[in-house]
Simulated scan of single mutants.
Amino acid sequence: MSSHRHNPVVEQSPRDTYLDAARACILDVGWRRTTLTEVARRAGVSRMTIYRTWSDMQELLGDLMTREWGDLVTTTQPTLGYDAAAGPAPSQIADGVVRAVSVLRENELFVRIVELDPELILPYLLARRGRSQELILGLLATVIEAGQATGTIRSGNPHALARGVVLAAHGFVLSAHTMADDAVSPDELDAELHLLVASTLSPEGGPR
């Protein structure tokens, strides 16, 4: 599994350096054993430098998850490359959703958090939407609206359609491993997700 964060050509900001240090800590020892003091040590700055940016680890984690998964999802979405005149096809949006789900499932930070500290994910499933989720919903709603304008995507509230797709994707991100075995492969599950999303958004797949 590889990181999606590091680009040796672009000089990153001090904030990104601090977030990289936090990311490395979490990968090494997990969330519970990561402190702002340790983040500062790894980043090579004073503890007060980190405290001036984040008041606690929960706040830092929010920024880290937004950066990590926001960047990841943005680079896998179908907003890149479809014909604006023709509009995005349901299959193109489904391609983007399946890519995002697959890459997120394999993201080393996500895997580490789910393995060691799954309770960190629960608030974003049970209580509130996070910034990364809002970003994903915004991207999907925009591309769905573009498809509705050209007739390639079925009518309906684009925000409701986007949220339905994201709710379905949650299960494929978090629980696909429980459904994959000798009878059903991960690739077959991803194919079912693709069919689900494409059928949901197709003009022929709407309410009768």
Score class of each variant (00 low, 15 high):
S202F: 04
Y82T: 12
G130V: 00
P203M: 08
Q133E: 07
L60K: 09
T76Q: 15
W54P: 04
L36A: 06
R154F: 02
G30L: 01
E11L: 10
D181W: 04
A168Y: 06
Q148L: 05
S2K: 07
G81Q: 15
P90F: 06
P207T: 05
Q12I: 14
N107G: 12
E68Q: 13
F172G: 07
A40N: 02
L64A: 13
L109F: 05
N7D: 12
D181L: 04
R32Q: 11
R99L: 07
S202C: 10
W54Y: 13
A94D: 12
A89E: 14
I113P: 04
T79W: 14
Y18P: 02
P158I: 01
G70P: 10
I144F: 03
V173P: 00
I153V: 15
R131G: 05
T35G: 01
T150C: 11
Y82W: 15
D63P: 09
C25R: 00
L201E: 07
A24V: 02
S55D: 15
D63V: 15
T17A: 09
M179N: 02
L126C: 08
R131L: 06
L167G: 10
M1Y: 00
A176V: 12
L19R: 00
V114E: 13
G81W: 10
W31R: 00
R128P: 00
G206M: 05
W31H: 05
T150V: 11
S13L: 08
S102R: 15
G87C: 10
L72E: 06
E59P: 05
S199Y: 09
D56I: 14
F110M: 12
M65G: 05
L189G: 06
V101F: 06
G130K: 01
A24M: 02
V29E: 06
G96K: 11
E134D: 11
G156R: 05
D28V: 03
S91D: 15
E38H: 00
G30P: 03
F110L: 09
L161A: 13
E192A: 10
G205R: 05
V166I: 12
S132N: 07
L193C: 02
I93Y: 11
R23G: 01
L174R: 13
P186G: 09
S91C: 10
L167E: 13
D95G: 13
A169N: 08
V101M: 08
D71F: 06
S175T: 10
M65R: 12
V45G: 01
L27N: 00
V39E: 00
V101Y: 08
L193W: 05
L135G: 06
T35C: 02
P207G: 06
T76C: 15
E38I: 01
R67Y: 08
R163S: 14
A100Y: 09
S202K: 06
P14Q: 07
H170K: 09
